[in-house]
């Protein structure tokens, strides 16, 4: 104990309300020194970092101190290397470069292997699943939906076993690179309403849906006849032709006419009639060969083939 160190508190001498006084205790030493240290810190900061504006320029700080180099892609697609003083954005860009370099190793492995070899390698497939999901979400999901399930009347389901343009690796690759354009002419110009009803009944009969037998028999003649010439695109067996991307009418999968969602037989008939009479000019998929890098397209091909539909 050293009581002698405790002094009587001094006041400003001002007394009000009888006994209220203001003390003049000094600030604690640690606080005062902390305050001075902030001055020193400021000066050090000025030396190392961009700080003071001078006319149209500014003090750059000591060059070479804590600088960060990173590569960025400009709007016109050029890769430029930039060196700047430390800041959050350049640090972020630098870390992104490192991560991209890390990811590139895996892309290179996918690019260097055949489709089959990629699909047999569980480690590579894990990469395909995660990187593919990102690529698919960024580029394909707006039409094909986030899980590749598509939407009836808008875009094909990539998770089922029906592939209009073919489901092999090469066929999927061709589709992604070149895009697709599906077309069916409107048949109300050559067929009357009765004929369209008969044709629709025939189409429903192909998939085992409820239909009128006589109308379907008449519809079969129209399908195979030359006035409408449905067989020309859909094939004599109505199973579609991969070269044209025409739909297989005999399976349970519906792309344009939403038969599964229709409440009753009449609504199913209406849905099919609507497609036959109006035709289709909506099945457009853009080409991706200049929007995605070759290794990205290859990875997406494997993703669509093995992670989604399995090509079968």
């Amino acid at each position: 104990m050293s009581q002698d160190k405790i002094k009587t508190p001094t006041t400003t001498g001002h007394v009000w309300d009888d006994d209220l006084q203001e003390l003049t205790n000094p600030l604690p030493n640690w606080w005062v020194w902390g305050f001075y240290i902030t001055f020193v810190f400021t000066i050090v900061y000025w030396l190392f970092y961009p700080a003071w504006p001078i006319g149209h320029t500014y003090t750059k700080g000591i060059p070479g101190w804590n600088s960060i180099t990173y590569t960025a892609t400009t709007v016109d697609g050029k890769e430029v290397e930039k060196t700047t003083h430390w800041n959050m954005r350049s640090k972020f860009m630098h870390e992104m470069n490192e991560q991209q370099a890390e990811q590139k190793k895996w892309f290179d492995k996918v690019a260097g292997a055949s489709y089959e070899d990629v699909s047999k390698d569980a480690d590579l497939m894990q990469f395909v699943n995660s990187a593919g999901k990102t690529l698919f979400s960024d580029n394909c999901a707006p039409c094909h939906q986030s899980g590749g399930q598509g939407k009836v009347g808008f875009s094909p389901n990539l998770t089922d076993d029906h592939w209009q343009y073919g489901g092999t690796y090469d066929q999927i690759h061709t589709t992604i690179v070149g895009g697709r354009r599906g077309y069916m002419p409107p048949f109300k110009e050559v067929l009357n309403d009765q004929q369209i009803t008969q044709l629709a009944n025939y189409v429903l009969s192909l998939s085992g849906e409820p239909h009128d037998e006589t109308a379907a028999a008449a519809g079969a003649n129209i399908f195979k006849g030359d006035s409408a010439a449905c067989y020309y695109c859909h094939g004599a067996d109505a199973k579609g032709r991969v070269e044209l991307g025409s739909a297989n009418l005999t399976d349970k999968i519906w792309l344009w006419a939403d038969v599964p969602a229709a409440k009753d037989a009449a609504a199913k008939l209406d849905a099919v009639k609507h497609v036959i009479s109006g035709g289709l000019d909506r099945g457009v998929m853009p080409n991706w060969d200049h929007r995605l890098k070759p290794e990205q397209i290859k990875l997406l091909t494997v993703y669509v083939h093995d992670s989604l539909g399995g090509g079968k």
Partner: peptide, 20 residues
């Protein structure tokens, strides 16, 4: 279970579910 979509109908009317 992969939930997008919950199930898939295949061309022969059978059903497919996917899992990770």
């Amino acid at each position: 279970q992969v939930r997008q979509p919950m199930f898939i109908m295949l061309s022969d009317g059978s059903f497919r579910n996917r899992y990770q």
